[in-house]
Simulated scan of single mutants.
Amino acid sequence: MDLQDNESANGTAVTRPANTAIPDNLDALLTRADTGAALRAAGYPVADATLATKATRGGGPPYARFGNKPLYRWGDALAWARSRLSAPAHSTSEHEAA
C-alpha cells in the first residue's frame, strides 16, 4: 500500500494511504463511506458509524437522500468537522477552563 505524509488539521504529520481522495470540489456529493474516508484523510478521525449515528440522532453534517442513499456535500461535511475542532492549547487545563 502506498503511503503519503500529510499534515493533520492540528498541524502534526500524519501518514495515511495515498489513494484516499480529498475532493477538490466543495460541492462534490459523497456517500457516507466516502465522506468518512475523506474526513479521515483530511485529519479528522471520524468513523462512518459516527456519521450514521448522527444522521439518526442529530448533530452531524447535513445530507440529502438520493433514493435510499444519504449523500453528503463535501463542503458541508468539512465545515462540520472544522466546527468540532477546539482552539490550540498548550495543556489540558486550558481546555478544561474553556
Rank of each mutant, 00 (worst) to 15 (best):
E96F: 13
T92V: 09
M1T: 05
G43E: 06
A41F: 01
G67H: 02
L39E: 00
T92Q: 12
F66Y: 10
P23H: 00
D34Q: 14
T50P: 04
N68A: 14
A33N: 08
A55V: 13
R73Y: 04
A37E: 06
L51F: 05
L26T: 03
A79C: 07
A97P: 04
W74G: 00
W74D: 00
R32L: 15
T15F: 10
D2V: 13
W80V: 01
R82L: 03
A13H: 11
T12V: 09
G36E: 00
R40M: 00
L26H: 00
N19G: 06
N19Y: 11
A18G: 08
R82P: 04
G36Y: 03
Y63R: 12
S86I: 12
T20H: 03
A21H: 07
D76H: 01
Y63A: 15
E7S: 15
R65N: 07
D34L: 10
A55Q: 08
R32Y: 07
A18Y: 08
P17C: 15
L71S: 05
S83H: 06
P45K: 02
G59A: 06
L30D: 00
A47N: 13
T50F: 14
T35N: 07
E94F: 13
L39D: 02
G59C: 08
L29T: 09
G75W: 03
E96G: 09
E94M: 07
A79W: 03
D2W: 10
A55N: 01
T31F: 09
A55M: 13
K69G: 08
T56V: 12
R73D: 12
A33M: 09
T50G: 07
T20L: 12
R40N: 01
L39H: 00
E94V: 05
P70W: 06
A41K: 04
E96K: 09
A21I: 02
D48A: 14
S93G: 06
L51K: 01
N19H: 09
P88V: 06
S8F: 09
D27I: 01
H90Y: 11
A42M: 02
T20R: 11
L39Y: 06
G36A: 12
A41M: 05
S93R: 08
A77T: 02
P61V: 03
A33E: 12
L26M: 01
A21Y: 01
D34H: 13
V14C: 10
L29H: 10
A18E: 13
R32H: 07
L26E: 08
A98W: 05
R73I: 05
A64Y: 07
Y44N: 07
A64E: 10
Y72K: 02
S91C: 04
H95L: 06
L30W: 12
V14A: 10
A79G: 05
Y63N: 05
S8Q: 13
K54C: 14
K54V: 08
G67V: 10
S83G: 10
N25E: 02
I22F: 02
P62N: 11
A52G: 12
A47M: 13
R82K: 06
L39C: 01
G67Y: 11
A81V: 03
D24S: 13
H90W: 08
A98D: 11
A37P: 02
E96L: 15
A87R: 08
